[in-house]
Design a protein around this nucleic acid. Structure first.
Lengths: 365, 365
DNA sequence: CTGAAAGCGCTTACAG
DNA sequence: CTGAAAGCGCTTACAG
């Protein structure tokens, strides 16, 4: 409007003047559940519209000692599963008119800085995604009475809500699927980092197999990959398949990337076929699990529900900071693909045969 | 300290009292480049430390009519390349003590809401990542004199900086690589959405081939996939390979996901071999491009540099909102893998042969 | 270099 | 339901 350099945002006073009411009335109009007469409200809305007014959240948040910002802490941006959580989280927060302030917890020396930065914005809560962000972080927030929700973490801390996929269910099902497919010499491929999800999955897997192991019907051992990625899975293939006399015929990998790497390693290094020579099960159902080249049987985590529950828990805790901790376990769903199913017809490269092998193999949408 | 319920954040007044100085002195101590005597500064710092004081960014930002928040707009969280940008962006922003406010622009009806939300926090800038966020959005911000930087977009708007990967370089190189590999019947696989990157890549590809096409040395046509994902690539295989007499022997796909889908489709539906029957080149170098199952020749975008430049451009523009637009083209690097290289030895499934085919096939780190 | 004072844009008892 | 006034925690001329 004016030719001055400043951006000249419209303020509530401008709207009040324009509408012939007080600033209080303007404020009330834009406050959920405040008492304002319908006509007043209408006038204010009209003026606000005309002037292009928007509440200055900075000022509102200052007054209320709390913003609508929620810290979303990711440790490392290299985990496809974690990244897939970002979309649903953003969406769920938006539904409650909150906004995600992204923070990277992967670099330890940068951590306390980022922590401070979040606090400086008086965030109304923090969501810690699975993996390695130190539990110490959660404690700091707790001390400041900032609500914390964690996804796929061990429920160790009093006062924080934990939303997990049901790893035990997955582990048990993995055992069932592999046994049903005829595997008898089994391996659980774990990762070195001792985070919750992998160990819970492995423990449930072992437990489900315990009876058969005791009877000598199946063999089970555990192997450890150097990390969570494809490359580590590829390397793990050497560990598992180098000795022809001791090759497992069924492997449950603690995540999909590892499983894809393992499959490729088994194929490229030792010419093994999946599922004929070795059956493989993963966890997460990342996009490439559905790729024809892997067609990996795996467990889909319900990222939508994880995000929804996390945001909901956080919201409830904002209202009642001292409510007791909750731990939720959300069901996972088994996605059976070719990596555990020996096709009924011959499956080897029969050139030119435009066969679609089975329902689940069709390309994902 | 007190037993009251409120969180009782420490304020600058508390620090001032504790240090025996004015609130102005405290403020200056925490303001970059403000003039304050070393001893005063020391006293303040000591008291702040003792009390656990941190500047309330909400208040500071309100005064300064601008926060340290930067809007990061992503349209759809299903694009692995875009997600890979998030890490570097967060990092670069942190280096300048700014923080990314994440926003999803994929749902049109939610768009203006999110837009408003960002403005309400008086963000100091916006980064639009590649893809479909409507250009309209950029205009809105521009009108409000909020600096805008776009990554991998067409440089159409005066006043916004655009940071792109050099698609032309990539397109030209793709032509060279495919021809060198012996392909003569070429296809460029585009996507329906008319965004910049795909068309620029295709145009450069075509231009590089123009001479040979004219001489009749190679054939080139364009095909269009229904979207950018693996599934669309898989479907595109039908389009390209259904007719045995008209099969291309070289395909340049506008992105990696599409290329992986195409490869799987060619293999699964028609028993074709890559690279023996058809050579494939992608773009982006997403993680799965390196997987043994695809070993896809592709172009790596320098996501670190894209992020760094975008954040830097934004920062400069904050100081000088009226500076002329800039368009940067960052070099891409060719990553040659098996999908364009016929192995010198026989490459088919010779079971049990622990061959590592070539340098570039080794698992990624 | 320093402090007292005004002001940023909002919300919230308070009194009506 | 409404408005005048106080106050949130900070920065910034201003005068010294």
């Amino acid at each position: 409007m004016s030719s001055g350099k400043s951006s000249a945002w419209v303020t509530s006073a401008d709207v009040a003047r324009h509408a012939g009411v007080s600033r209080s009335a303007v404020s009330r109009t834009f406050t959920e559940g405040a008492s304002v007469a319908p006509e007043t409200r209408a006038k204010v809305l009209k003026s606000a519209e005309a002037l292009g007014y928007q509440v200055n959240m900075l000022a509102r948040s200052m007054i209320q000692q709390q913003s609508n910002l929620v810290g979303v802490v990711v440790s490392g941006f290299d985990n496809p599963f974690l990244l897939s959580l970002l979309g649903p989280l953003t969406h769920q927060l938006a539904l409650r008119s909150q906004a995600p302030l992204l923070m990277d917890a992967s670099e330890p020396e940068q951590l306390s800085n980022s922590l401070r930065q979040l606090m400086q914005y008086r965030i109304s809560g923090v969501i810690l995604t699975s993996g390695t962000p130190p539990i110490q972080l959660a404690k700091e927030y707790l001390r400041l009475r900032i609500p914390v929700a964690m996804i796929n973490r061990e429920p160790l801390l009093e006062g924080v809500d934990v939303i997990n996929s049901d790893n035990r269910q997955g582990g048990a099902l993995a055992a069932e699927v592999l046994c049903r497919a005829g595997a008898r010499n089994l391996v659980f491929l774990n990762v070195v980092t001792g985070t919750l999800s992998p160990s819970a999955r492995g423990a449930a897997f072992a437990k489900a197999l315990a009876g058969q192991v005791r009877r000598g019907a199946v063999k089970l051992r555990q192997a450890t990959a150097g990390g969570v990625s494809y490359a580590h899975g590829f390397e793990a293939a050497r560990q598992l398949f180098a000795e022809p006399s001791a090759r497992p015929d069924g492997v449950f990998c603690t995540n999909d990337a590892l499983a894809c790497g393992l499959i490729d390693g088994a194929r490229a290094l030792y010419g093994l076929r999946v599922p004929e020579d070795v059956k493989v099960v993963g966890f997460d159902d990342i996009p490439m699990a559905a790729y024809e080249a892997y067609a990996l049987t795996t467990f889909r985590q319900d990222i939508g529900a994880l995000a929804e529950r996390a945001v909901a828990c956080l919201a409830e805790r904002m209202g009642a900071p001292d409510m007791p901790s909750r731990t939720l376990e959300l069901p996972v769903s088994l996605v059976e693909r070719r990596s555990t199913q020996i096709p009924s017809i011959e499956s080897t490269e029969s050139a030119k045969a435009p066969v679609r092998r089975r329902r689940l193999v069709s390309p994902p949408v």
